[in-house]
């Protein structure tokens, strides 16, 4: 519990000058959206295997140490393992044709349950990886600029696109900060004798409340301070006639078109493979 930040890399950005880092954020967001849609659609193992190759290829392109990325996913995967156990044990089939391996009271382990839960969790892992990689290779400002540029047409409908994007980006910025805060609170509570992960469920929930309540309070305080600091630096969202300038100009290059084309091709392949593959 105490060394959480070492096990979560979500929300961090590593500027290593890789091909993925240098891509236009609009291209990255479009590719990400396409991949998320395709990954969510597929369910066959053959298509999931192709997803794995795609993720490995992206990992190679990102030039990030695999160990760093995997370490960042450790905590999420541990959580997913617990979820997997529940999914398998409480799996109910809609077709009734379940081949039961083990049964005790309300708990059942069936082949269908194992296969279905494995497919769902593999998809979730791939989606988490894609999101982490987008964050690791794109700075918050680039992400905001890219999202704003892509959502610009919605401004005609009266949507405050810039403000919505900024809220989303700041929420992402708070992820590593809140992780550090959880770590700090865990240490503070542990030194007072609170033992996490021990005792009955009620005692465990009580121990966690010592983190969750102050975390919520400090989160609110931080948000208030940050909005004050932004206003003090002349950030005037919502003011008519205000226009921010940008240090980085978005530039769509051939590499971005190539990335988008490859991504489209892969998504098409995934969908086709999912339709024709027997397993």
């Amino acid at each position: 519990m105490i060394e959480i930040s070492r096990h979560i890399s979500f929300g961090q950005y590593v500027d290593n000058g890789s091909w993925l880092t240098r891509l236009d954020p609009r291209a990255k967001i479009l590719c990400f959206a396409l991949a998320v849609a395709a990954f969510t659609y597929i369910s066959q193992f053959a298509a999931l295997a192709l997803c794995l190759f795609f993720c490995l290829f992206l990992q190679w392109l990102s030039r990030l140490p695999l160990r760093y990325v995997l370490q960042g996913m450790r905590m999420f995967i541990s959580f997913l393992v617990v979820l997997y156990a529940f999914q398998v044990l409480f799996y109910t089939s809609s077709t009734q044709a379940t081949s039961v391996i083990w049964h005790w009271g309300v708990l059942t382990i069936s082949w269908e349950g194992l296969v279905h839960s494995t497919q769902v969790d593999l998809r979730v892992i791939f989606l988490y990886y894609l999101t982490s990689l987008l964050m690791l290779t794109t700075s918050l400002v680039d992400l905001a600029d890219g999202a704003e540029a892509l959502l610009r047409p919605l401004r005609r409908l009266g949507l405050p696109v810039h403000e919505l994007v900024m809220v989303f980006v700041i929420a992402l910025k708070f992820v590593p900060l809140l992780i550090t805060e959880v770590e700090r609170l865990s240490i503070a509570q542990a030194t007072r004798g609170v033992r996490f992960g021990r005792g009955n469920p009620w005692q465990r929930i009580r121990a966690l409340s010592g983190i969750i309540v102050p975390l919520f309070m400090s989160g609110l305080q931080r948000v208030e301070m940050l909005s004050t600091a932004m206003e003090a630096r002349c950030y005037r969202a919502g003011y008519r006639g205000w226009r921010r300038s940008k240090l980085h100009a978005l530039q769509w290059t051939g590499a971005d078109s190539l990335a988008l084309a490859c991504c489209l091709l892969l998504c098409g392949l995934l969908v086709a493979l999912n339709l024709v593959s027997p397993f």
Partner: peptide, 25 residues
């Protein structure tokens, strides 16, 4: 400083204020 740094890279953070002023690139 954690309460007032808006962006997540050094260059972007320094540029945040001037960008709000609408200065040329």
């Amino acid at each position: 400083p954690d309460d007032q740094l808006v962006t997540n890279t050094v260059i972007d953070e320094i540029a945040f204020g001037p960008e709000n002023l609408g200065l040329p690139r």
